[in-house]
Design a protein around this nucleic acid. Sequence first.
DNA 1: TTGAAAGCGCTAACAG
DNA 2: CTGTTAGCGCTTTCAA
Lengths: 355, 355
Amino acid sequence: MDNPETKSAEKAAAPRKSRKGATPTVRDVARLAGVAPMSVSRAMNNPDAVSPDILQRVRDAVEQLGYVPNLLAGGLASKKSRMVAAVVPTISGSVFLEMVQALTDALAARGYQLMLGQAGYENSREDALLEAIIGRRPDGVVLTGIMRSEQGRRRLLASGIPVVETWDLTADPIDMLVGFSHEKIGKAVAEYLHRLGRRRIAAISADDERAVRRNRHFAETVLALQPALGQDPAAVPTCIVPAPTSLGSGRAGLRALLARDPGIDAVFCSSDMMAQGVLLEALASGIKVPQQLAVVGLGDQSFSRDLYPPLTTVRIDGTAIGATAAQLLIDRAEGKPVDERIRDVGFVIVERGST
Amino acid sequence: MDNPETKSAEKAAAPRKSRKGATPTVRDVARLAGVAPMSVSRAMNNPDAVSPDILQRVRDAVEQLGYVPNLLAGGLASKKSRMVAAVVPTISGSVFLEMVQALTDALAARGYQLMLGQAGYENSREDALLEAIIGRRPDGVVLTGIMRSEQGRRRLLASGIPVVETWDLTADPIDMLVGFSHEKIGKAVAEYLHRLGRRRIAAISADDERAVRRNRHFAETVLALQPALGQDPAAVPTCIVPAPTSLGSGRAGLRALLARDPGIDAVFCSSDMMAQGVLLEALASGIKVPQQLAVVGLGDQSFSRDLYPPLTTVRIDGTAIGATAAQLLIDRAEGKPVDERIRDVGFVIVERGST
DNA sequence: TTGAAAGCGCTAACAG
DNA sequence: CTGTTAGCGCTTTCAA
């Protein structure tokens, strides 16, 4: 009677019942509603595919049990995690906040969740982070101007996860791209300041790759517009500060610049926060803005319009970047065709009192 | 030879092979390494539990296949998602950034990931967000001064997920708590300004519940210290602005306050960004800070020390809150006992040039 | 429309 | 220390 055969038969015949207190599952709901588990699944994910009667019974049961579907299980079975991972260098710089916010909102609106990762400005953690991300099988990844390592790019590509790179416009994106041209910004700001009659133009810039690239074009354009300066890039005084930038680095930057060349009449800063520092330092040292010094920022943060004087800055539409990235990823996840894989959201120089 | 029996036997004997191009699984690794899937699992999660020989073979196979464990499957089986959800009112206000950053870092360091949710300042989305969170069965949830709805609290409690509430000190936390007392801050700042000899004290405050509470204690303390003012709360001019606060709302706030009472000699702002707006507005209208007007902020953001004049503010250690919350949650997830469920990280008034 | 069967990829539990 | 077995809770697939 207790031989192996009967034992295993008994086991198979007696599925564990739902212990009281445990989180309810589809089976509990199905039992209560008097339908098959599959019908519960359908009622929740595709209400149109079940009869009104079943739908109602399932909803009642769900309500009564306080059932919340386990998305891990759902994701495993369906190979859709309804989750998107975003990687930013650091959240504290706050330049990407607008984008992260838009991303979170746009995703949430369509039932997706955001997983946030910070890569740091040094690429040490990049690999571990990538592993953690791929391991969760997100439906998409949003990269913010990072993933320099060729190996990282390959791994992402190999994982088959849709990727949107942002905040830049590179020639060969891994997959999709929503960004703007740092080169064009550098050029445009140089031309703008030159047009205003400024002839002792300087810059304070972060040391990350994009900022450096932007700045190179900025300096080159200034030189091209003022042949008298010659070809030496040093003719455009530039102060490089470590990322992330801050108000303090802006103040220190202007001091450093003035020590080198007191006659500077314009500064292009690689962030609005830094530009604010420049404004403050000028104020503290009695330099009149914009009369003696024109200041241009980057980002058009919410505070910039309220500064004293209001800050002229390069507006980048972080909200558009975030929303577009979410859109692309969700479309892809839901099998819709994505027409343009590369989107240039552009930029605008917003002219205010500081120039 | 092709009768049903042999067929089913064949089926059992021929598990689908790993199709080329598909993501590798434990089974693929196990086959390549010549071990059981379970040994692969052990080698990855608990290397000490397998022999060096197996460990090496598994590692080689993992490397060769580019295997990345599916954490959804792992989580489903082990009931540990190695994921923590954080809910903030909004990320753009930036007051919580330091905390979110610390949280992300502390979690990442121990192999956990952060899921970010924005509840908004209106409680409309709260319910959907909660559902999305619980559905992913995170190992913990960090709440930032929200979850007002009693139903929401109940659902969280019922889900059995460890919860850390932050940024406040309430009498009856859902579970754990890391925060500070808004009441004490209000009282402390009032006493501080009074001690400086200020007698026309005002406030500009956000309209969220915590700010309101902080402010009530602020006003009450001012009144208690200046009996001549009587008991009317209106004797402490207060400008309420909608959250999230901004530099612009600080400027507008000061204008509103001065219109009501031009003799104001001190303002307590519910955020550093707003205090900065007050500083700027004062500058623009020729009011000397701190001589004519003392300004106190809240948060000690990184820019505050570099303002002109440097801002006196209430320092709140967001990093400590984030790190502690992560610690509590991870300890709980790993079965370690948590001794104190309520932690008061306190606050400090950092005295600088604006007072 | 509805249901039954068969996993998704992993790990807990137990046997060897 | 290593392997086997049996699911975790859901959805895909196919049959009714």
